[in-house]
Structures are given as C-alpha cells and as structure tokens.
C-alpha cells in the first residue's frame, strides 16, 4: 500500500490517469443513478433491477455491433427498446406493487432482476463481451497517460443525455407533472394529473436512461448477464449519498464514486475496489442517520 502511494508521489502524472478514468466511468454511474433517483423519488420504488436494465441496454448495443452497426448507433436503439420494456414492465408488475409497502416492491424488483439476468444468459449467452467502437487510444505524457477516444465520446454523450433529461424535467408538461407527483401525489391527483400515467412514464424513462448507460458501458467496459448487481449497488450508493431530487448531487456523487474506485484500486489493490463502494455506502448511511437524529431533536 505504501509502495503504491510512493509511486503516486514519484509519478504524479499517474493521478491524471486515475482522475480521468474516474471521470469517464463516474459519468455512466451518474446516469444510471439518476434514473434510480427518479423512480425512487417519484414512485418510492427501489428498483433492484436497475443494473440488469443497464446490462440489457449493453447487450442490445453489442448485438447490433456484432451485426455491423456501429455501437454509437446502438444508443438510440437501446433507449427506445428499454423505454418500451420499462413501459411493459410497469403495466405487468410495477403498477401492482406500487401502492403496497416497501418490502413488496423490493421483492418484486429483486425477482425481476433474477429473471432478467437468467433470460439474458439464455438469449445472449454467458460470454463476457464488449462492443468495439474501433476508435483509437491517445497517449499523453510519454505514454504514462492513455485516453481511449471512446471514453471521451461516451462522457460527452452522457453529458448530452443528462442535459436533455434536465431540460425535459424543467420545461415539458410531463416533466412538470412528474415533479408535481414527486412532491405530493395526492395534491397532484387533485389538480387533475393522471398519476398512474406519470408513474408509468417515469418508470419507462428510467429504463431508457439505464439503456443509454448500458450502451456506454458496453463500449468502454465489458458486460456479462450477471454483472448487473454491481451496477445496482453503485446506483444505490450514489442515490443514498446524494438524495433524490438533487441531480447535481447525483452527478457529483457519481464522479466521486468513480474517483474512489480508481484510487482504492490503485492504492489498496483491485480486491478493495468493490469493498470501497460498499464501505462508502455504510459510511453514508451512518452519517445520514446522525444527521437525521439531529434533525429530529431539532424538530422536537
């Protein structure tokens, strides 16, 4: 561990590599986490199949790429396909559990996650695959820092998508309806908003965002039917840390998690990369608990 720290001190340029990699992956984490924040905040559904939707988006991209379509064009396809998928899932499953207690929706989405992972395994096979963009890798600082062009492209795409979603939420009627429902579903109903339709749209939108994140992840990393759970965990850590309804916080937490993973992987070793994510979740929960306890005392 000390060796690795001294390595960072000797070659500070390595920090740039770690920060860049953290930035690139943090952006995709933030995207998937924002979808979760939406569903969680608006519908109070903790969507445990978030990561599996990401992987599904990735597989759509990979399948297209294997059939000669450039993976970047997989992005709109994955978004539309997952939007439709989310719509159907809402009608079949989510609308039945949304009014029930927390545990029911947790179980339902957890079950859905298992079914999705196994179905993808049957349909796409268990191989670890990746969508090759064919882009070059640039080297900086005598080859000590490398930047794959696809990572830059995916960062820009993630930023564009995030901007579109923000504008949509602020400006469009549906966006306003979603925000109104999130604030107070009963009041929104009184005001004539069809909350069921809002829920349905929100869930489908979340799935579409996951599809986009999956497309980007399949281009910069590797995917496999059973990789979903790690993406779910990441999304949960980010949303728990940032809180829902706070897009800026989600983006910040996304990048923070990206950096944390890279640095822990470098300093402590890859074996602690995931442990760091889960460890951060515990810390975040403890801090939140203390904050809330203080808040409660203040209220009393």
């Amino acid at each position: 561990m000390l060796d690795n720290l001294s390595l960072l001190a000797q070659a500070p340029v390595l920090n740039i590599q770690l920060l860049l990699d953290g930035l690139f992956i943090g952006a995709t984490f933030a995207l998937a986490a924002y979808g979760l924040a939406l569903v969680w905040g608006v519908m109070n559904v903790k969507n445990l199949c978030q990561g599996d939707m990401v992987i599904l988006g990735g597989f759509i991209t990979v399948t297209l790429a294997h059939n000669g379509i450039h993976p970047i064009f997989g992005l709109p396809v994955a978004i539309v396909a997952l939007f439709v998928y989310g719509w159907i899932v809402y009608r079949l499953i989510i609308c039945r559990v949304i009014e029930r207690d927390l545990f029911t929706s947790l179980l339902a989405t957890f079950g859905l996650a298992i079914v999705m992972a196994q179905s993808m395994n049957l349909i796409f096979g268990p191989e670890v695959t990746t969508a090759d963009s064919g882009f070059e890798t640039r080297t900086l600082f005598d080859g000590l820092v490398t930047v794959a062009e696809i990572k830059v492209v995916s960062l820009l795409l993630a930023a564009t998508l995030a901007t579109i979603v923000i504008v949509f939420m602020k400006r469009s009627r549906m966006g306003q309806a979603i925000r109104a429902t999130a604030q107070d579903a009963r009041a929104a109903r009184v005001m004539g908003i069809d909350t069921d339709r809002v829920y349905q749209f929100t869930y489908a939108l979340n799935a579409a965002i996951c599809g986009a994140a999956g497309c980007l992840i399949s281009m910069i990393w590797t995917i496999q039917p059973f990789f979903g759970i790690t993406h779910s965990i990441r999304a949960f850590v980010i949303v728990t840390a940032a809180g829902f309804g706070n897009l800026f916080g989600v983006i910040l937490a996304g990048f923070g998690l990206g950096f944390a993973e890279q640095y822990s992987g470098f300093v402590l070793g890859a074996q602690f990369q995931q442990a760091t994510v889960v460890g951060l979740l515990v810390i975040v929960l403890v801090v939140r608990q203390i904050q809330q306890a203080r808040h409660r005392r203040a209220v009393i």
């Binding site: 390595l7 070659a11 990369q273």
Partner: peptide
Amino acid sequence: VDDKMPRDLNDISATLTKVKAL
C-alpha cells in the same frame, strides 16, 4: 503488483495503471 479481482468486477484499469508505471 499482486492484485486480486473481485468476482463481479469488470474493471481493472487502476491495476493496469500500476502495471504501466512499474
């Protein structure tokens, strides 16, 4: 370098950065 990949991890870029430097 002696790193161990967790079962569900699909990213070893931090480890590879070490490899590149050493």
